[in-house]
Design a protein around this nucleic acid. Structure first.
Lengths: 236, 236
DNA sequence: GTCTATAGTGTGATAGAC
DNA sequence: GTCTATCACACTATAGAC
């Protein structure tokens, strides 16, 4: 850690304050979004909540959409954490089970955050706040990184000859993702999927997309038919 | 058909004109929504498009949300037509294939309509334009009716012992629906599912949720592994 | 860096004349 | 039934003083 003169220290302090305020804005935004959804996060409301003028916000964020992007990034990071908590599960099918359940639980537990992350129109039309930013990871990248955790498990399943499909593992991963997203999305928007609880739909979907954990036998002797309530090593 | 005096004829004419204007409003709305999405359908813009004042709209629709509801209803009706076109397929699996593909094609072909129908927050918060209406079918009902066409096919599959899951057929139907919706929803919102074309995801999903058409053998001898490109009787 | 003040534009919906 | 005029908001974003 380098010594610094009083001048440098001062600018350093300022940078920290600046960062702190930015963080505070983000924190309050996150809470408002969690409670009322991003649609009702207005700059005025936000400004009032942090006891600053609306104008102050624009010193830290280029636009409202810029805040959305930051929040999306946060969301993707925390979803990624949720997934990483299960990477230690050795059996790929059991791991997928855990991750799949966790994904849907995440979506249902934080509906508005999930909406912001996955249910808003493409990239949220930040034609303004463009690419050359502070090395911000695009939401798509982060999503892809998370998806790759699922894809990896499918690759392992394929390698162990336990994947009941000839399709590319990545394609299967995307298929399963779409399935899980569909469950969350329809549940979040109310009236849909009234008959079946989300948890059960998740189990059915996991069963649909790959052989259950016990079914190590490669072909033609699946145990799928016999165990709607299979056991695995997840922490559920 | 009853005779009517000049008085009755006049009111009848008026009713027709009224109906015609309502229809015209709806038609223009539909086109705007198709092109730019419901979010950018404002009463002003709509009024200008039909060459009336904004106030005139409120003689035919209680609110903007009321228009949304009418458009949703239209959408559900046309989706239902799409499904009905395939009900003549005898084999339930082949029928499901056709319907599943048609569903996704519908969504991708009319993204904004699909958004309005399935991707907006619950019921679109028409707390105002409430229940006691002109016998308007709720969107949920219409959706349920369409879903039941899928459920029926699953019931048939189960009856023929061709459903590789012990779950209730309705649950499977909802699972498949969620899967298809997920594909459409993620594709519509851009950045997601970059690797795999929607059509392929659909095929994989259909394969995942029930045995293919040729696999009439009930248990333990599935042909699933052998045919990513199976043939069926659909018009695809 | 932060403020006040405000520009500039949009919105849904309604009152009241004709 | 249709209009004009308008209410009552909300919004993002910026200018310019301090």
């Amino acid at each position: 850690m380098p010594r610094m003169g009083p001048q440098a220290r001062r600018t350093e302090q300022r940078r920290e304050q600046r960062e702190a305020l930015r963080e505070r804005i983000l924190m309050v935004s996150r809470e408002i979004v969690k409670r009322e959804g991003f649609a009702s996060l207005s700059m005025r409301k936000l400004a009032e909540a942090i006891d600053y003028s609306p104008a102050a916000l624009y010193l830290h964020f280029k636009s409202r959409g810029d805040i959305a992007r930051a929040l999306r990034k946060e969301g993707h990071a925390s979803l990624r954490d949720v997934f990483l908590a299960h990477t230690s599960i050795a059996d790929p099918a059991a791991r997928l089970n855990a991750m799949g359940r966790a994904y849907v639980e995440f979506g249902l537990a934080e509906p508005e955050t999930y909406r912001l992350m996955f249910m808003e129109p493409a990239g949220f039309a930040d034609a303004n706040a463009d690419a050359g930013d502070n090395g911000n990871g695009r939401a798509a990248e982060s999503g892809a990184a998370t998806l790759s955790l699922i894809a990896d498990a499918f690759v392992e399943l394929r390698a162990a000859d336990r994947l009941p499909s000839r399709a590319a593992p990545v394609a299967c991963a995307e298929g399963l993702w779409a399935n899980l997203h569909g469950i969350v999305a329809l549940k979040l928007n109310g009236a849909a999927l009234p008959e079946t609880p989300a948890a059960m739909l998740v189990e059915l979907s996991l069963d649909a997309w790959y052989a259950p954990v016990n079914g190590t036998e490669p072909r033609g002797t699946e145990t799928r038919f016999n165990s709607p309530d299979r056991s695995d090593t997840s922490t559920r």
